[in-house]
């Protein structure tokens, strides 16, 4: 459990680390737009190239980035299976004379293609988000978000409080992961079995983990609240910031890269013939 890196900052010094968090968030949003705009594998290919560039310039080991996929592996497999079985294609796959069609399940060539497409898409979304959280400290991430969301203050959205809630949530992830580990071991010691049995049995086995986890999270929250209050936190507007966000030459560079990616994807959608 401890190797789940999502939300865990990877401290090295790199181009991506030094970019302004606001720009990185905008870049991520732009990147997601590009991934969703991609109508075919050309666009996804371009997105993949940009992704590889980002990983290379972040100096985060590829393994650490890949690890973040673990958390959504189930989601990927689940959507893949749904698409594979239920995609409304026309050409049913025939293997050794057997047509792969049973009742409402219909495995088609288009379905397989779409399944691969969707898997690539989710994969890239997760990887891109992981790079953001691996190269940006939760504090600067939330500073960036807060700064980007400032206009919402005019309609009385407590932007600062929301940003703080998010940064604390991110910072608590590793602690809660440790907690899950501890509780699972404790339940195993009492004879709980998490790795055998059908899906229903496994989900049931998780309940005795979730309830203590929830309780401990609430207890932690209360203690943290006390500690924050004791350190003069009042949630007031007079709060100052130690770290100030500043744009550097890097930020226009990645901004342009992002714009180029979106433009490229749109052009590819229009001019390139579909694969398959």
């Amino acid at each position: 459990m401890k190797d789940v890196t999502f939300g865990q900052y990877y401290p090295v010094d790199s181009f991506v680390h030094k970019c302004d968090p606001r720009m990185k968030i905008l870049f991520l949003v732009g990147y997601l737009v590009a991934v969703f705009l991609s109508a075919d594998f050309y666009g996804l290919g371009a997105c993949a190239v940009v992704l590889v560039l980002c990983v290379a310039f972040s100096r985060v080991p590829v393994r650490s980035v890949l690890r973040s996929i673990k958390g959504v592996l189930f989601l990927i497999v689940f959507t893949a299976i749904l698409n594979l079985f239920f995609y409304q294609g026309e050409t049913t796959v025939v293997i050794a004379g057997v047509s792969l069609q049973w009742g409402i399940i219909n495995i088609t060539v288009e379905g397989i293609r779409f399944m691969i497409f969707v898997m690539c898409r989710i994969f890239m979304l997760v990887m891109a988000s992981a790079i953001l959280t691996l190269t940006t400290t939760p504090v600067s991430l939330t500073d960036g978000l807060e700064s980007l969301l400032t206009p919402l203050k005019w309609i009385r959205v407590p932007v600062h409080a929301l940003a703080l809630i998010m940064s604390i949530a991110l910072r608590m992830i590793p602690a809660l992961m440790d907690e899950i580990d501890r509780i699972m071991n404790a339940q195993r010691a009492r004879g709980a079995d998490f790795s055998h049995g059908g899906p229903v049995k496994r989900v049931k086995a998780i309940i005795p983990v979730l309830i203590p986890l929830l309780l401990s999270a609430l207890r932690r929250a209360e203690e943290l609240g006390d500690a924050m209050e004791a350190r003069c936190y009042t949630g007031s507007q007079t709060r100052t910031r130690y770290k100030k966000l500043t744009f550097t030459w890097r930020d226009p560079v990645i901004g342009l890269l992002c714009a180029a990616l979106i433009a490229g994807v749109v052009l590819m959608n229009i001019y390139l013939p579909p694969i398959l």
């Binding site: 865990q8 900052y9 400290t137 939760p138 504090v139 703080l164 940064s167 604390i168 991110l170 910072r171 932690r220 203690e223 943290l224 500690a227 924050m228 130690y242 770290k243």
Partner: peptide
């Protein structure tokens, strides 16, 4: 349960 940030200086 007292640390709010994930970097010491923050």
């Amino acid at each position: 349960n007292q640390t709010v940030a994930s970097i010491v200086e923050d």
